[in-house]
């Protein structure tokens, strides 16, 4: 039975249901319980934004607080995954990949191939990304393209509570290393989520909205921004099709290409910086595979190529909004050779 819960609750429920189903699932991270070794409460935080709250009490010994020591515990999660556990490690902010990246991209990502197909490393790294909370340059980045670049990793960007639960359960059951990217500004977003466990397969885009005039491929939080733009565009008589790839690795290129074959126009909306990004990647895909269908140059709506600024005025300018998306769509609609 579906009921309305938040993105945060959806992530928590996915963890809870998988921990109930499979005793090999463990959770670890900085303050994932919170309060280890302190005189007060043991489950003080449940993660810095409360996502893992309550799991510590329900699953004794399976929710591990860690020192602030990302290389060690992310590496430990990877190592434990080679020995029969299904660890879900929380890398608090995706920006902290800088202090543990080796364990992810040189170790976990490589084992399967480098060891001749004999390794199975079912580790999930949950991590928060994105701007919007005035968290500034080192706590706001959209670094998923960096992970997407690495063969051997699967990269997931849930855009809603429904996606968050089903994709996280899939991530935990998946036998490959998965980077599960949660947008920090989506935690309070609510939506209908089935109570039962379910999985959403990786590499299957969601067509969020049908339309024949233009294809908007939007990632993560940008899906709702694109929906806002599409609603306004519809009032002006432009029907946008919105595609949420849900996973950037694997990427459902078929759904994107089929849509562009129909609409002839593409706008990619990505909160990440533009160089070597999903925006450029998807644009290149379409330019290569659907060139003949294009009726206008591809538009990209992204952050500028700068670090994420702190001041509210600047951060608002930094993040793509519905107006920018609508403008880009109009540009493709108005384009003449």
């Amino acid at each position: 039975m579906a009921r309305t819960i938040s993105y945060r609750e959806a992530v928590n429920e996915a963890l809870r249901q998988e921990m109930e189903r499979d005793p090999s699932v463990i959770v670890m991270g900085e303050d994932n319980a919170g309060g280890a070794g302190s005189p007060g409460e043991d489950d003080a935080w449940g993660g810095v934004l409360g996502v893992t709250k309550g799991l510590y009490e329900q699953f004794p010994g399976r929710v591990l607080d860690t020192p602030i020591s990302e290389s060690a515990f992310v590496g430990a999660a990877v190592g434990a995954a080679t020995r029969g556990l299904r660890p879900v490690a929380e890398l608090m902010f995706i920006d902290f990949m800088g202090v543990c990246f080796d364990q992810i991209f040189n170790q976990a990502a490589k084992f399967r191939y480098m060891f001749g197909g004999k390794a199975v490393t079912p580790v999930v790294v949950r991590t928060m990304y994105g701007a919007g909370l005035n968290a500034a340059a080192q706590h706001s980045q959209c670094l998923y393209p960096v992970f997407t670049h690495i063969p051997g990793l699967k990269v997931v960007l849930p855009s809603s509570p429904y996606e968050a639960k089903g994709l996280l359960i899939q991530a935990i059951r998946d036998n490959d290393p998965v980077i599960f990217c949660e947008h920090k500004a989506l935690y309070d977003m609510t939506g209908e989520v089935p109570e039962d466990s379910y999985t959403i397969p990786f590499g299957e885009a969601n067509v969020v909205r049908d339309g024949d005039d233009v294809t908007i491929v939007a990632l993560g939080r940008m899906v709702s921004v694109a929906e806002e733009a599409a609603a306004e565009l519809a009032r002006q008589g432009v029907q946008a099709e919105i595609i949420d790839p849900r996973t950037t690795s694997p990427l459902d290129s078929d759904t994107i290409l089929e849509s562009v074959e129909n609409t002839g126009r593409l706008v990619v909306v990505d909160e990440a910086t533009p160089r070597c990004s999903m925006a450029t990647d998807i644009s290149a895909l379409v330019a290569q595979e659907a060139f003949g269908a294009l009726r206008a140059p591809i538009e990209m709506v992204t952050a500028p190529h700068t670090p994420v600024p702190f001041a509210q005025t600047l951060e608002q300018l930094y993040i793509p909004d519905a107006q920018k998306v609508a403008n880009a769509v109009k540009k493709t609609m108005d384009w003449k050779k």
């Binding site: 089903g166 089935p194 039962d196 379910y198």
Partner: peptide, 8 residues
């Protein structure tokens, strides 16, 4: 599809 994805 939402139904079909449910466990079981």
């Amino acid at each position: 599809m939402k139904f079909k994805r449910l466990d079981g």
